[in-house]
């Protein structure tokens, strides 16, 4: 059984990879810029859906 990784190192590695993704997309020609926009939209939609789900009283709400 593998040992559970260190959470700080894990989020650090994730954040560094995310930064590389953002930088590469920002420096790339059009297609990648469009991917960046589309990814941002997806993240925004996901967050909105999460927010709606959490605050919706019919699905458990926040209280």
């Amino acid at each position: 059984m593998s040992q559970k990784p260190d959470i700080k190192a894990t989020v650090n590695a994730f954040f560094q990879l995310w930064q590389r993704q953002v930088t590469l997309l920002a420096q790339s020609p059009e297609q990648r810029a469009e991917e960046l926009v589309s990814e941002s939209k997806r993240i925004a939609e996901y967050l909105k859906a999460e927010s709606d789900r959490v605050s919706d009283p019919d699905t458990g709400g926040t209280q």
Binding site: F15, L17, W18, L24, L25, E39, S40, R42
Partner: peptide, 27 residues
């Protein structure tokens, strides 16, 4: 950059984040 990483975290965890091909293996 930092704020968007928070938003991307759940997607990265469940494998639905569209990483660039060159970052896929590490992702």
């Amino acid at each position: 950059s930092f704020g968007s990483s928070l938003g991307a975290l759940s997607l990265a965890k469940n494998g639905t984040l569209a990483w660039l091909p060159e970052l896929q293996e590490e992702a």
